[in-house]
Amino acid sequence: MKNKTLKAILGTTMAALLLAGCSGGSPSGGSSSGGSSSGGSTAPESSYPESDIQMIVPVGAGGDTDANARLLASYAEKELGVAIPVVNVKGSSGTVGMEQVRTGEADGYQALFFHTEAMLPKIAGIYDYSLDDFRLAGVCLQANTTLLITHNDSGFTTLQEFIDAAKANPGNIEYGMAVGGYPQLVGLALEKEAGIDLNLVDIGGNADKIAALAGHNTDIINVEYALVKDYISTGEFIPLALLSAERNPLFNDIPTAKEQGLNMEFGKFFFVAFPKDTPDDAVNTFSAAMKASVENPEFVKAAQDSYALTPVYMDPEEATKYAKQVEESLLKYADLFTAANN
């Protein structure tokens, strides 16, 4: 262990030195590369990447999206040989950051890292752009970990008991969510698919939801497995269903909603996207680096250990097709979503 720590220290010091070093070297290095690029647009494009690639994460620092972006960046950096600083641009459910990338220069030096929620503004009817207005470089991670979960004093311990209870007391079982976000969509879909009526109450983000459930201030929430696994082992929280097509091998004992007769699939996929007009070369180069990272066993282990994610690589075409599919499956709840928020 000591050895590993020592290595870590060395690593840190090296990183610091490197930072200082590249700062010393960069004025000259930078100007020479600048010279070649100002030499005209005829310069061969295969030189990408020549400088740092900004990875914009449209949510604040902290949380799974930010952590996953930093994880991917730290591996893709090694593949591409340039720094990939993660830049948080938060606000308006991610649209501020998404807008910054979408309207930014399409040169491959500004990428967006986000997940399925990127499609929500369009589904909610707030913005009319969606992933079609970007160029996907690929998908790198999937989260088949969304659980419907309750606390141990709610009076129901299985999905069926919950549905029965909800039918017996329409509008009285409280579902904690955040208005305008993914959890609201899940809540509305649950009401529709199970044919029940819940009291959908705004509670906030993940931390607020877990606090509310642990304090018995709400009855049922949807949340990612990794964030509540301790609560499940202590028996304080009872998972009702996994909202995924198949059981997750990382926690095989939690049944899916589908096998319990409820047609609900709400996974998340994390992707990298560039502005629409970004050259093929840049997109493909970046995508290849994503592929190499996803295939790196260390990356796989970190993704599984941290948020129980499934590393999956999809190339630009597959990713675009997949995103379209997911969007269509979500669009069937669009009416419910807009009706609830207007």
């Binding site: 642990a214 990794a226 509540v228 696994k229 250990d305 941290s306």
Partner: peptide, 9 residues
């Protein structure tokens, strides 16, 4: 989280 440790009860 990145080390697979979830703070919790």
């Amino acid at each position: 989280m990145i080390h697979g440790i979830t703070p919790g009860p």
